[in-house]
């Protein structure tokens, strides 16, 4: 399997804080890679560097190489907007656009960027909502405000909105941590389903979740990449003592 995203000696600074140190690793195509580690270890920071979300923070500095399909997304002249269209993101807290209907939220990526023919919009809304298993729950009230949905439904709507713009990679920043167990289960099933089409990188501090959904796992501690490899191996025979201590719950 080829590598979709590849990190080379990635360092991330916020002002004087060195949040991520010399991380080099690869994310294979059409697979789920989980990034685990205790709070504040730099998981989210690393994740957000992969679609250039740090560009908005003046004090943030990303060095090293982040390649998507072998192209450096921090290369000279690369437009962060075009990167974000290829590398979508789902956030920790469901964040549908509150002033929009369910329907408009799904096609927000198109509508905010210009016009979208009605026929095409209808198709996108139906197919994306079906893929996140939300269609049957909302098909009769597509025009109602998105905030009327439950938290779990909102998160699935956010995933629908993300896949609607046809990204190649989906970054998920603790997508189920604000949800109840049943909604979490639905999101996890969805991730399993989505990996046939997308490369998924998920940050989670729930180790059971990482074990359940991911093919590969990377353990990050204090900004360092301690270990990465196949999830089964990381959780059964880790090479590093620190990994073993973390996954067995001795710290973190």
């Amino acid at each position: 399997m080829s590598n979709k995203v590849h990190l080379e000696e990635v360092n991330i600074h916020f002002g004087k804080t060195h949040a991520v140190r010399d991380v080099s690793m690869s994310f294979p195509e059409n697979s789920v890679t989980a990034i685990i580690g205790p709070s504040g270890c730099g998981k989210s920071t690393l994740l957000r560097s992969m679609n250039r979300m740090h560009d908005l923070v003046p004090s943030a500095r990303v060095t090293g190489k982040i390649l998507v399909d072998n192209g450096d997304i921090y290369g000279r002249g690369v437009d962060p907007v075009s990167i974000r269209r290829r590398v979508g993101m789902v956030f920790q807290k469901p964040n549908p656009f509150p002033a929009m209907s369910i329907y408009d939220n799904v096609v927000a990526g198109y509508k905010l960027n210009g016009r979208l023919p009605r026929e095409e919009a209808n198709e996108i809304v139906e197919s994306c909502l079906k893929r996140v298993a939300l269609w049957d729950e909302v098909k009769d009230r597509l025009k109602t405000n998105a905030m009327t949905l439950s938290g779990g439904q909102q998160q699935r709507l956010c995933i629908a909105r993300t896949i609607a713009v046809k990204p190649e990679v989906i970054l998920m920043d603790e997508p189920a941590s604000a949800l109840d167990p049943i909604s979490t289960l639905k999101i996890e099933e969805l991730i399993e389903e989505l990996k046939t089409r997308y490369t998924i990188i998920i940050v989670t501090h729930n180790m059971q979740q990482a074990a359940r959904v991911s093919d590969y796992t990377a353990f990050l501690y204090m900004g360092d990449l301690v270990e990465c490899g196949e999830t089964k191996k990381i959780f059964t025979t880790p090479e590093q003592k620190r990994t073993e201590d973390y996954i067995t719950g001795r710290f973190g």
């Binding site: 679609n51 907007v81 964040n95 549908p96 656009f97 990526g109 905010l112 909105r161 993300t162």
Partner: peptide, 22 residues
């Protein structure tokens, strides 16, 4: 909230469009 700006930016909407439309 900043999460709304991020939601829009993550969809590949340029910053100025995000400011005006979101």
């Amino acid at each position: 909230p900043g999460s709304l700006r991020e939601a829009s930016l993550a969809l590949g909407v340029p910053f100025w469009r995000t400011s005006l439309k979101v």
